Simulated scan of single mutants.
Amino acid sequence: MTGDTLDFGPRRHPRRMSLTPMIDVVFLLLIFFMLSSRFGMDAVLPVTGGAEGTGSEWQGAPRLVDIAPAGVSLNGVAIDPEALVADLSALMPADDAAVILRPHQGADLQRLVDVMDRLRAGGIANMILVE
């Protein structure tokens, strides 16, 4: 102590705030929003209806291929996967007509890919995958 003043030693500078926690939070938010975003466009089947009386762009017979764990069915009727392309071709009004593929709960992804490959090899390229 010197006289009437107290001496606390050399004056320290206030500690700077660290930006590391804020940067961590920003990166976590960035990752969250990137993972929760949808980047692709869903294929939409254009169907109009209601009181307008207008038709839809869908033409011809229904072409719904169900992929189940036990097998494949066309419009609700069980079918041999080898005969799928031939039976679908009879229902197609045009070569570029759409076919709807609907995998069921428990169906293998490989079975779906096999059906899609079989249809592509048979000349059917316009496929719509629905849940």
Rank of each mutant, 00 (worst) to 15 (best):
F32C: 12
D80N: 05
G40T: 09
M17T: 11
A94W: 06
V85C: 02
P103S: 12
T20E: 06
G40V: 01
L6W: 10
A68C: 03
I128P: 02
D96R: 05
A107I: 08
D24P: 00
M1A: 08
R120S: 09
P62Y: 03
S73I: 04
L30Y: 08
V130W: 15
P81R: 01
I124A: 14
P46D: 01
G9Y: 13
E82K: 14
D42H: 12
P103G: 13
L91N: 00
L30G: 14
R120T: 10
R38W: 05
E52M: 12
V26W: 08
A121I: 07
I67R: 02
L29A: 05
R16C: 01
M41T: 15
S73E: 01
A90I: 03
L19G: 10
G50F: 03
P62N: 01
S37M: 14
M1Q: 10
G50R: 11
D114Y: 04
D4E: 13
Q59W: 00
F39I: 11
Q110R: 15
M92E: 08
A107F: 00
P14E: 14
N126G: 01
E57W: 02
M127A: 06
G3E: 12
N126K: 06
E57A: 15
G53W: 03
A51Y: 13
G53Y: 05
G3D: 08
V47W: 04
V25A: 15
D7Y: 13
P10M: 07
L91S: 00
M41N: 10
A86D: 10
V25Y: 01
R38Q: 04
A98D: 11
F27Y: 10
G122R: 03
I124P: 07
H104A: 07
E82C: 02
T48F: 10
L129I: 13
V99P: 04
T20W: 11
V85H: 04
S56I: 08
S56F: 13
I79V: 11
D24H: 11
I100N: 12
V115S: 05
M41G: 09
T5A: 07
R120Q: 15
M127H: 03
L112R: 00
R111S: 10
D114V: 05
L30C: 11
L91A: 02
V26F: 07
E82G: 03
P10N: 04
E57F: 09
D96G: 05
A121R: 05
I79Q: 02
Q59M: 06
G49S: 09
A90D: 04
L91I: 02
V113Q: 09
T48D: 08
N75M: 09
